[in-house]
Write a protein that binds this DNA or RNA. Structure first.
Length: 781
DNA sequence: GCGGGGTGACCTGAA
DNA sequence: GTTCAGGTCACC
């Protein structure tokens, strides 16, 4: 296929790093909170005072469904809050800090100080007709009763937990949240929680207005069992019921609410007056009436606005939120709608700061990064709550907001802000879209393979038992060791030295390397080797893939924060681990087509493109290997060991190693007395640079290509998978030439990022291939 | 060509 | 019956 001819068709600017624009979006949105549309908000100032002073019933929906109501608010709390307001930290300190994190040219002209008299307050309650309000309260009551029943089941399950230290810590975390609820409810801040299905037209249009002007949105998914993404023990299998969203009227002063003197055991330090907490029901209901359709339509509008809004959307596990929205849109929505979505995910921020902290829960992150606040709460006057099982979603969203702001500051302090904004955040919608895409599987061929491989395994098992002289479990390394080394004593007969297993184990390992060295001594090792190979293919790539199939196709779950090196990882199925090389097996006896003695099995060939589409694979051609050679050849020339010492003394002095785009891995202190540990740490350090830099470039390529396609009115190519240095796309047949040019350009445009520190001109080699089956791709050009 | 680190999947076997 | 650790092997 000729690519040059299509080059003119590609009109995208691939060389622009799209993400300083994302950073700008985040920051300008944060600023908009205090300066934008001042006039529009002005009139509501008086209303909020009146509403606050009058006797109002506040309702909040707790995560376990309990209704918390406060009637006839104690005026003292209002006074105390007013006092707190007067000793707040200098307003916008957090924003000012964050602004500095961006390029200088982006600095705002002026940052106006906020004072309570200047900031107009918003209160939708005053303007929502009483009828709607009653309806809303009625719904909440109904809803809460229903939720209570669900939560009781949940609680019973929770009670059966053991008393391990881990469970205790979870329990304590929940108690802390109860304190938050108490503090929240008594501090004078209420927040409003309403189900948007029960809003009338006026309220709906007001909500739309608030959405447009919100300074930040904080969202979480709510599951059918009543839990949210913020709960550590959320049921993994539970389906999404809806979205809870906190609309922040303006950003809060003082990123770190730990140091905020106004933080008196609750969240009073941040102004939450005017914040609005809404619930968007997304679950599909069987009963389908005109009213439901109208609700669904409005939910669609709200979510669509959320995707397109100017402000950042804060979400713990934002990818799951994006995927849920995509699924809710269904066929009516294009994946391109989420392309410029900016979701601030605190989990990703925390992972960049400490990549070795694998998959912390929301509670873990709060404990780790807002530790002091937890202490404050525990010793507060609200400590002895009897409602220790309650957890309030709105409060948690406020905590989530604080946590995220704190982590953003830490990112900047660690020099990771740019990486966060330009690489990791844009990846969120990309991975969500990838997860939403289904890869077709040749099911018939797969089932045929399963039977065939099963028959071959049976044969090999019988052969193994025969040559061993007894029956044993082939997959059991213990039993195999007994046969090979206890009974046959092959390790003693071997002319090659068989290394002993670490830890003074009785017999050597049964690993592939050992079995290969024993092949000439006895037929058993060879049989075992073939058995393991066939078994691996059958269990992982044939039966395993079949188990992951839904409606004839598969879709991996992508983990952005699962590795210390910055790589992505995939599971269910792990598409990155599917065998590349086909294997040859002996055709089982008494099997169809026995004229052929050997049979080729290629797991990747079982994944096929959908009708009218072609797979296009683009890879950096062993980028890691190149990368590895660079430090070896250029940093460590003649006296490698000596240079290593110098390099690492610098490295360890800094306390971390960094990839080409500034990804970091903290390093442990090295003890010269422990040469083994030291050597291992040094290998890890080199490995991080090798893997992390390759991951940086591959992720950047994903962002650039995705952005270009999303902004194209004609291209429909989908990113299907990333296998470390390889990107797999599914492209409409007619678009292959044009898309191939785009991909090549995008990947080669990363040349200038490639090892800038070493000032090397190592060409980035990009190879493209295409075909209808992943296992059988023909090179392009 | 070989070895290394770091992923996930699968299996066994002990707790 | 469930959970967890160890062993092995696929990918890069």
């Amino acid at each position: 296929m000729k690519m040059e001819n299509s080059e003119a068709c590609v009109g995208f600017d691939l060389c622009e790093t799209p993400l300083s624009s994302v950073a700008q979006k985040i920051m300008s949105a944060m600023h908009s909170g205090d300066v934008v549309d001042f006039k529009n908000w002005g009139e509501s100032t008086k209303t909020v005072e009146m509403t606050t002073k009058s006797s109002v019933k506040y309702s909040v929906l707790l995560e376990d469904g309990k209704d918390q109501s406060l009637e006839g608010r104690n005026p003292k709390s209002l006074t105390s809050q007013a006092l707190k307001g007067s000793i707040r930290l200098p307003p916008w300190s957090s924003t000012a800090r964050l602004t500095e994190q961006l390029s200088a040219d982006q600095k705002q002209k002026s940052i106006s100080p906020r004072s309570s008299s200047l900031i107009p307050q918003y209160n939708q309650e005053a303007s929502i007709p009483q009828k709607t309000e009653n309806k809303r309260k009625h719904f909440l009551k109904e809803n809460i009763n229903k939720e209570n029943k669900e939560s009781m089941k949940h609680k019973r399950k929770h009670v059966t937990y053991g008393n391990s230290s881990e469970k205790i810590s979870k329990h304590m975390a929940l108690e802390e949240d109860t304190n938050e609820v108490e503090a929240y409810l008594t501090s004078g801040d209420s927040g409003h929680f309403c189900d948007i299905r029960y809003l009338d037209d006026l309220a709906k249009s007001q909500l739309t207005g608030v959405l447009k002007q919100a300074a930040a949105l904080v969202v979480t998914l709510m599951y059918k069992d009543g839990s949210t993404q913020l709960r550590a023990d959320q049921a993994l299998t539970s389906c999404v019921k809806g979205v809870v969203m906190l609309l922040k009227r303006h950003v809060e002063a003082g990123n770190s609410f730990l140091s905020d003197p106004a933080f008196g055991g609750g969240l009073a330090g941040g102004s939450k007056q005017g914040d609005w907490c809404i619930y968007i029901h997304t679950e599909h209901t069987c009963v389908w009436g005109r009213e439901q359709e109208a609700h669904r339509q409005f939910a669609r509008e709200v979510l669509f606005q959320t995707l397109k809004c100017k402000c950042p959307v804060i979400c713990f596990n934002a990818k799951d939120f994006v995927r849920t929205v995509l699924q809710f849109f269904g066929d009516d929505g294009s994946w391109k709608h989420v392309a410029d979505f900016v979701g601030l995910d605190p989990r990703i921020a925390a992972w960049l700061i400490d990549p070795s902290d694998a998959a912390p829960s929301f509670e873990d992150l709060v404990a780790k990064h807002l530790e002091k606040s937890i202490t404050v709460k525990a010793s507060s006057t609200f400590g002895n709550s009897s409602r220790n099982s309650n957890q309030n979603v709105c409060v948690n969203l406020s905590i989530l907001y604080r946590l995220t702001m704190d982590l953003c500051s830490k990112l900047k302090a660690n020099g990771l802000w740019q990486l966060f904004c330009t690489l990791e955040l844009p990846l969120i919608p990309i991975l969500a879209v990838m997860e939403n895409h289904k890869i077709q599987v040749n099911k018939e061929e797969m089932e045929r393979m399963s039977v065939l491989l099963g028959a071959r395994l049976k044969e090999l098992e019988q052969e193994a038992h025969f040559v061993a002289g007894e029956q044993f479990l082939i997959m059991s390394s213990n039993q195999l060791r007994e046969i090979l080394f206890g009974k046959l004593k092959l390790h003693l007969l071997s002319p090659r030295k068989i290394p002993p297993r670490p830890g003074a184990q009785r017999y050597p390992s049964t690993s592939e390397a050992v079995l290969k060295s024993l092949q000439d001594l006895h037929p058993l090792p060879k049989i075992i080797l073939e058995y393991r190979q066939v078994h691996k293919i059958k269990s992982t790539f044939v039966d395993g893939l079949l188990a992951c199939m839904k409606e004839g196709s598969i879709s991996s779950t992508w983990n952005q924060t699962g590795t210390v090196t910055g790589r992505l990882s995939a599971k269910n199925p792990n598409i990155q681990g599917i065998s590349k090389q086909p294997i040859q097996i002996t055709t089982p006896r008494n099997f169809k087509g026995k004229e052929d003695k050997t049979l080729t099995v290629s797991p990747r060939a079982l994944l096929v493109s959908s009708k009218g589409h072609t797979f296009l694979a683009a890879d950096f051609s062993q980028i890691e290997l190149h990368n590895k050679n660079i430090p070896v050849e250029h940093v460590m020339p003649a006296d490698r060991e000596q240079t290593k010492k110098v390099v690492y003394s610098v490295v360890y002095g800094a306390g971390y190693v960094a990839s080409v785009l500034g990804r970091r891995r903290p390093l442990p202190r090295i003890h010269a007395q422990d040469p083994q540990l030291r050597a291992q740490a040094e290998r890890q350090a080199v490995n991080f640079v090798v893997q992390g830099s390759a991951a940086d470039l591959c992720k950047m390529a994903m962002v650039r290509i995705f952005t270009a396609v999303a902004s194209s009115s004609t291209l429909t190519a989908r990113l299907v998978a990333q296998i470390h240095d390889e990107l797999l796309f599914e492209v409409e047949d007619s678009q292959v030439p044009e898309f191939a040019v785009l991909v090549r350009r995008a990947m080669e445009s990363l040349q200038h990022l490639w090892n800038p520190e070493l000032q090397l001109q190592v060409p980035l080699k990009v190879s493209l291939s295409a075909g209808r089956s992943w296992g059988c791709l023909a090179p392009l050009q």
